[in-house]
């Protein structure tokens, strides 16, 4: 059975304005070999922005692991890490 990875992207306004708007394209940007493993979910706010010292927005999480300063490329790299 294929390994499943859950990505949650923060669509809160802070993340959206500070670069997260681009993350809505993750589904289209995923390489074919990743696509079957990844389930993308949106979140109205992951609440990471309210926690001090958690890094810069935009935030996302992969299988519950928080990621900050996300870009499409950094998320894809993290997904490969998680897969392997």
């Amino acid at each position: 059975m294929d390994k499943k990875i859950e990505v949650r992207i923060c669509f809160g306004t802070l993340c959206h304005v500070m670069g997260g708007a681009e993350l809505q394209l993750l589904g289209e940007a995923l390489p074919p070999d990743l696509k079957k493993h990844v389930e993308i979910k949106g979140s109205t706010c992951l609440e990471f922005c309210h926690q001090q010292g958690q890094g810069q927005p935009p935030f996302a999480s992969i299988n519950g692991r928080m990621l900050s300063g996300c870009t499409l490329q950094s998320l894809i790299a993290e997904l490969y890490k998680e897969l392997n």
Binding site: G12, V17, M18, C45
Partner: peptide, 16 residues
Amino acid sequence: EEYGAWLIAAGINLNT
């Protein structure tokens, strides 16, 4: 951009 920045400063999340 200014509207977006103002929303952040005011703590308004459009989704909620």
